[in-house]
Design a protein around this nucleic acid. Structure first.
Lengths: 289, 289
DNA sequence: GACAGTTACGCCCAACGTAAGCATA
DNA sequence: TATGCTTACGTTGGGCGTAACTGTC
């Protein structure tokens, strides 16, 4: 189970082709063939069908492990490297779209920071592998409970804020006139599925305890304006932190959701040993100035 | 970052000796030296001080990653192997001490199962690496919230029960006479630290929101009778599932803890593709018969 | 017959053991 | 001086590329 073999395996599985993976990795087709043969020999199982090239059941199992495994390997290397190399003068902060509240935005220094908005699911890995220096992630949680993040590597997690929730509705929606909503009001609503920009539907389902809630249109992208516009156009509801309600454009309405059990939480992710400039920015973000 | 090198590195760090690790791994001392040199060369950093042999800062960082990494590697191999080999006729169930309630105990079939009680922290890894077939783990959680388990590998987690909490006290304790306790009553109590048998103190602290609660004697072991005896002898309080109160021997008393925010939860851990007999047992355990 | 994965073979590097070197208690 | 890690060196096995082979569309 040499990581090289594993890397080749995922490339072949992803591309569905030995020769493609070879091109991708800078090997010859023959080497890739030998890699796969070596892996299959080691595990005494066929991992791929040939013609067409597709993972077998065992291969699919292995693929599930290979991703996190290779990620942790990169994370380990990055973590050790951080101690040795000179800290960068420019640091980059990754944030999920809804993690950027006014408090964090004003806490950013005037210079030296690159802000990168990315899908929430990619942020832990980006911080772990050193692709970015810090990460801001948002999500649903019980009050003062930490978020459930995939532990791709030992990361330090700090809460930076909790907000009430609000529901985004089109102006003409039957519930749009209410001053506040309860969970019971939302039982048969249709929800936008926007895992990158909004809150992933599985998380909504789990947190709200609505196993049946049906998805509507899906939006893959990190642009909040698009999310708001989709909701305004009647494609489904979305959860928001209440503080974001102010920036919702007119055709849509944000109504507070009154539930004591849930908050919108945002957290700061840092490596265990951040570089000094990253530590400084982390401090500004957590203390609010 | 060959896993072999990593394995050698953790062995050296653990034993504090190159020659010791060599003996342990079946290498020559020279090979171990070359392994470490190769790792250090690859990462361009000193990982160990020699004489005495101790991890450097970078080495300590790497050690934090190496354990989970090697564990996942074993888990991947075990997961794939499970699909290929014949399912065992005898299956073993690992359980943390407090996870064994009367319901699960009566659900066990008369034959074909080996029950192994082990520290809660080792159970996910044991299931992942195939050392055991199924795992029962207990812990503190918000009602209907899953437990926070280290994700050593993709495991399937199923809730099998939730209980009220109780506090174990010595009979003479000032609070022992009460019919129920609240969190506020426990602010300045001293707690037994028994991470293997009872609930780990950090978890208690986090769940109860008592950052200051002070530990008392520590007990490393999985024997509940010992835990009860220590508490009865006045060494500190412990949390229990309320259903366990019945089996507490006389010199100690279990008083219900009334808090809507917390329950004692037990969950069943299975690999994603359990063997058929494991699936059968899992079904008995989750359905209660 | 063309495309794509496999196998044969040769080269080279990398990993190991043996044994000599060297630093520290 | 002894213990224990490092370095030198020779051997072996494994990984890669070239090229011939084979199976499938």
């Amino acid at each position: 189970m040499d990581p090289h073999l594993l890397r080749t395996f995922v490339a072949v599985a992803r591309l569905g082709s030995f020769s493609g993976a070879a091109r991708d990795l800078g090997y010859t087709q023959s080497a890739v063939s030998q890699h796969i043969a070596a892996l299959e020999g080691d595990l005494r199982t066929e991992l791929l069908t040939r013609r067409p090239v597709r993972p077998t059941a065992a291969g699919a199992r292995l693929l599930e492990h290979a991703g996190p495994l290779l990620l942790r390997l990169d994370a380990a290397r990055a973590d050790v490297a951080r101690l040795a190399v000179a800290p960068p003068e420019r640091i980059t902060l990754a944030a999920s779209p809804l993690a950027l509240g006014p408090r964090t935005l004003t806490a950013l220094p005037a210079t030296g920071v690159t802000l990168r908005v990315m899908p929430r699911a990619e942020i832990p890995a980006a911080v772990a592998t050193g692709a970015v220096d810090l990460g801001l992630v948002d999500g649903l949680a019980a009050p003062s409970d930490p978020l459930r993040l995939p532990d791709v590597a030992p990361l330090t997690v700090t809460g930076v804020g909790e907000d009430e929730l609000a529901v985004l509705l089109p102006a003409g929606h039957p519930l749009a006139g209410r001053s506040a909503l309860r969970l019971a009001d939302l039982g048969d609503a249709r929800w936008l599925d926007a895992p990158e920009a909004g809150i992933p539907l599985p998380a909504v389902r789990a947190a709200l305890g609505m196993p049946g809630c049906r998805p509507s249109l899906r939006y893959d992208g990190t642009d909040l304006q698009t999310l708001y516009a989709l909701s305004a156009a009647g494609h489904g509801l979305t959860l928001l932190p209440h503080r974001a309600a102010a920036s919702v454009p007119p055709p849509a309405v944000a109504v507070p959701l009154s539930t004591p059990r849930l908050v919108h939480r945002t957290e700061l992710l840092t490596p265990h040993t951040p570089t000094p400039p990253a530590t400084a920015l982390a401090h500004r973000l957590t203390t609010g100035a």
